[in-house]
């Protein structure tokens, strides 16, 4: 069986249009994580899979007209992002993901002169695999991610989980590049704090 990874985008497209089911399954699995992350980030966990399904239906209908001006992945991501935004509106959830109000000026880890007063500890493990060998930590991070403000969680999932570019984040979240940077930093910093706490106490 030929792997999708060894084919060019053009070959993948031709084979998909010819009805190559095996390849389709590979492509579906390959992009599922990224598409699900986008759907989850924008439309929420409950309807994320439904959004992915609707996006695939739209994508498959439009596939014969796809001209390959972008990569297949970014084309699929755009479709799922648009689908998720539409669903978000239908579900009467606020469309605006902007809310930059909270301040981290009062972060107790920093002294008044903005230097560290309470820095993070030395961690045991320098790879995700080493850190996540403690299964409870993964659950703990997931639980804490749910507590993040919606816009931070969306930015983190779109960027670090789905691997979207910064430009794509600005378009999807409808915020400026500097705001995207702030959202990402706060979200990653929260993950860091959760890991650090776990490293020190062994508890969530």
């Amino acid at each position: 069986m030929e792997k999708a990874a060894v084919l060019t985008e053009q070959q993948i497209l031709s084979r998909l249009l010819e009805g190559d089911q095996v390849l389709f399954q590979q492509i579906f699995k390959q992009y599922y994580g990224a598409m699900q992350s986008v759907a989850y980030a924008i439309a929420g966990p409950v309807i994320a899979d439904e959004v992915v399904q609707e996006a695939w239906v739209s994508a498959l209908k439009a596939l014969p007209k796809f001209e390959g001006r972008s990569t297949l992945k970014s084309w699929l991501i755009r479709i799922v992002a648009n689908e998720a935004k539409t669903r978000r509106r239908k579900e009467n959830r606020s469309v605006s993901l902007e809310n930059m109000q909270e301040s981290w000026a009062t972060d107790p880890r920093f002294a008044e002169n903005s230097h560290w007063s309470n820095p993070s500890s030395q961690w045991h493990g320098d790879t995700p695999e080493a850190l996540l060998s403690a299964e409870e930590l993964k659950d703990c991070i997931e639980k804490n991610l749910q507590k993040l403000p919606e816009n931070q969680l969306a930015a983190l999932r779109l960027r670090d989980s789905a691997g979207l570019s910064m430009d794509e984040l600005c378009n999807i979240l409808e915020v400026s590049p500097s705001n995207v940077r702030v959202l990402l930093h706060r979200a990653r910093d929260k993950v860091l704090k959760v890991i650090d706490h776990f490293q020190i106490t062994g508890e969530c």
Binding site: F28, K29, Y32, G33, A34, Q36, S37, D49, W116, P119, S120, Q122, W123, D126, T127, P128, E129, L131, L132, K138, I141, E142, L156, R157, D160, S161, A162, G163, H185, R188, D189, V191, L192, I195, D196
Partner: peptide, 26 residues
């Protein structure tokens, strides 16, 4: 402290990234 923070923020980003790769479709 900042050297350590920089390494840890990189690692935190990678940890989130590793979650996506383990997602299996329904």
């Amino acid at each position: 402290n900042c050297r350590r923070y920089k390494e840890q923020i990189n690692l935190s980003s990678k940890v989130v990234k590793s979650f996506e790769q383990s997602e299996e479709p329904n």
